[in-house]
Simulated assay, not measured.
Amino acid sequence: MLAFNKCYFDESWYSVSLDEGVLTLSDRKLSTYVNALAKAGFVIEQLIEQSDDEMMQSRDDNSDFAKKAKMLPLTFVIKARKL
Protein backbone atom coordinates (compact mmCIF):
# COMPACT_ATOMS: atom_id res chain seq x y z
CA MET A 1 0.00 0.00 0.00
CA LEU A 2 1.24 3.46 -0.83
CA ALA A 3 -0.04 6.58 0.90
CA PHE A 4 0.61 9.99 -0.60
CA ASN A 5 1.48 12.92 1.63
CA LYS A 6 1.13 15.53 -1.11
CA CYS A 7 -1.41 16.03 -3.89
CA TYR A 8 -0.16 15.03 -7.36
CA PHE A 9 -1.50 18.34 -8.72
CA ASP A 10 0.44 20.47 -6.20
CA GLU A 11 3.44 21.93 -8.08
CA SER A 12 4.43 24.40 -5.36
CA TRP A 13 8.05 24.78 -4.25
CA TYR A 14 9.32 23.14 -1.06
CA SER A 15 12.68 22.88 0.72
CA VAL A 16 14.64 19.80 1.76
CA SER A 17 17.53 19.96 4.24
CA LEU A 18 20.79 18.42 3.09
CA ASP A 19 24.08 17.84 4.91
CA GLU A 20 25.32 21.40 4.58
CA GLY A 21 22.41 23.32 3.11
CA VAL A 22 18.90 23.42 1.76
CA LEU A 23 17.64 22.25 -1.62
CA THR A 24 14.54 23.89 -3.10
CA LEU A 25 12.44 21.57 -5.28
CA SER A 26 9.10 21.33 -7.00
CA ASP A 27 7.29 18.18 -8.10
CA ARG A 28 5.82 18.53 -11.58
CA LYS A 29 3.00 16.64 -13.27
CA LEU A 30 3.91 14.63 -16.35
CA SER A 31 1.51 16.84 -18.33
CA THR A 32 3.53 19.92 -17.34
CA TYR A 33 6.59 18.52 -19.14
CA VAL A 34 4.64 17.24 -22.15
CA ASN A 35 2.73 20.51 -22.59
CA ALA A 36 5.94 22.59 -22.29
CA LEU A 37 7.53 20.52 -25.06
CA ALA A 38 4.45 20.85 -27.28
CA LYS A 39 4.27 24.61 -26.70
CA ALA A 40 7.96 24.90 -27.66
CA GLY A 41 7.30 23.10 -30.96
CA PHE A 42 8.49 19.60 -30.12
CA VAL A 43 6.83 16.33 -31.06
CA ILE A 44 7.19 13.43 -28.62
CA GLU A 45 8.56 10.26 -30.16
CA GLN A 46 8.81 8.10 -27.06
CA LEU A 47 8.16 8.17 -23.30
CA ILE A 48 9.87 5.73 -20.94
CA GLU A 49 8.96 5.37 -17.25
CA GLN A 50 11.34 3.26 -15.24
CA SER A 51 12.76 2.39 -11.84
CA ASP A 52 16.42 1.47 -11.56
CA ASP A 53 16.73 -2.08 -10.18
CA GLU A 54 20.27 -1.46 -8.97
CA MET A 55 19.21 1.66 -7.06
CA MET A 56 16.30 -0.17 -5.45
CA GLN A 57 18.52 -3.08 -4.38
CA SER A 58 21.18 -0.80 -2.93
CA ARG A 59 18.69 0.54 -0.40
CA ASP A 60 16.97 -1.13 2.51
CA ASP A 61 13.97 -3.07 1.15
CA ASN A 62 11.86 -1.79 4.04
CA SER A 63 12.61 1.89 3.41
CA ASP A 64 9.85 4.18 2.20
CA PHE A 65 11.94 4.95 -0.89
CA ALA A 66 12.26 1.27 -1.86
CA LYS A 67 8.55 0.64 -1.32
CA LYS A 68 7.58 3.61 -3.52
CA ALA A 69 10.14 2.67 -6.18
CA LYS A 70 8.54 -0.77 -6.51
CA MET A 71 5.10 0.79 -7.10
CA LEU A 72 5.88 3.91 -9.14
CA PRO A 73 8.57 4.82 -11.67
CA LEU A 74 11.47 6.81 -10.22
CA THR A 75 12.25 8.49 -13.51
CA PHE A 76 10.88 9.18 -16.93
CA VAL A 77 12.65 10.02 -20.16
CA ILE A 78 11.02 11.85 -23.05
CA LYS A 79 12.47 11.51 -26.52
CA ALA A 80 11.31 14.52 -28.56
CA ARG A 81 12.34 16.36 -31.69
CA LYS A 82 11.82 19.91 -32.85
CA LEU A 83 9.32 20.29 -35.69
Rank of each mutant, 00 (worst) to 15 (best):
L47H: 03
L2P: 03
D27E: 07
F76H: 10
S26G: 07
F65E: 15
F9M: 14
R59D: 11
D64R: 09
Q50D: 04
L74M: 14
T75H: 11
K67W: 01
D19K: 10
S26K: 05
S17K: 15
L25Q: 09
K67N: 10
S12R: 15
V77E: 04
C7E: 13
Y8W: 14
E20N: 14
R81D: 01
D19L: 12
K39H: 09
Y14G: 05
D27I: 01
R59H: 14
S31D: 11
N5W: 01
N5Q: 05
L25W: 03
L47P: 01
K70Y: 04
G41N: 07
M71P: 00
D27M: 07
L83S: 09
D19N: 11
F4H: 11
A38R: 08
L83Q: 14
D53G: 02
S17L: 13
L18K: 13
N5E: 13
L18M: 12
Q50K: 12
F4I: 02
S26M: 13
Y33Q: 06
A40P: 01
G41R: 06
K82W: 00
L83G: 03
N35C: 10
Q50N: 04
C7S: 15
F4W: 12
Q57I: 05
K39T: 10
M71L: 15
K6R: 15
